[in-house]
């Protein structure tokens, strides 16, 4: 029940981000789906005891792969799918907790939470980098073998 509410919330959250960033109306649904799936991956990995940093990395790998696939299928720039996809993964809670610890004078806790925030943000960025460039590499091999030229999207 709680999980269902969270999935609906993640979907609405990504959809609202799509509206705020002016994602073309015809693809808002797909970009929200990307956010929901990536958040679900993050959530289920954390619930099963996987490290948060690894979970963020896996979630953002999914963001990049889904975004590039949808970009090719629907013929839209992949940015349209990446932004609503990764914002549900952003470590906002951790960043905020770091600031709160600093204000309250708990420097050691702030330091460890700050390092965790930075590593999560790095994992998200690197997950997107790996998945986009990996996808491009695979696609260029495939296209070069089939048609002899590379499709740039």
């Amino acid at each position: 029940m709680v999980l269902a509410a969270k999935i609906v919330a993640a979907f609405l959250l990504s959809g609202a981000i799509g509206i705020l960033y002016r994602v073309p109306r015809s693809v808002v649904f797909y970009s929200s789906l990307n956010g929901t799936i990536s958040w679900l991956i993050l959530y289920s990995l954390i619930e099963n005891g996987v490290n948060v940093i690894t979970a963020s990395f896996c979630g953002s790998l999914a963001v990049g792969i889904i975004a590039e696939t949808l970009a090719r299928l629907l013929r839209k720039p992949s940015t349209v799918f990446i932004i609503p996809g990764f914002i549900p993964l952003v470590p906002g809670r951790e960043a905020y907790t770091t600031m709160r610890y600093m204000v309250e004078g708990w420097q050691l806790e702030a330091l460890s939470m700050g390092v965790q925030t930075l590593l999560m943000a790095g994992a998200i960025a690197f997950g997107i980098i790996i998945s986009i460039s990996g996808y491009r590499l695979a696609a260029s091999f495939k296209f070069r073998n089939e048609t002899g030229n590379v499709d740039e999207n």
Binding site: K6, A10, L12, L13, P88, R93
Partner: peptide, 10 residues
Amino acid sequence: VIGGGYAVVQ
């Protein structure tokens, strides 16, 4: 909606 959704997710 972004704020409300994120509160539920958290």
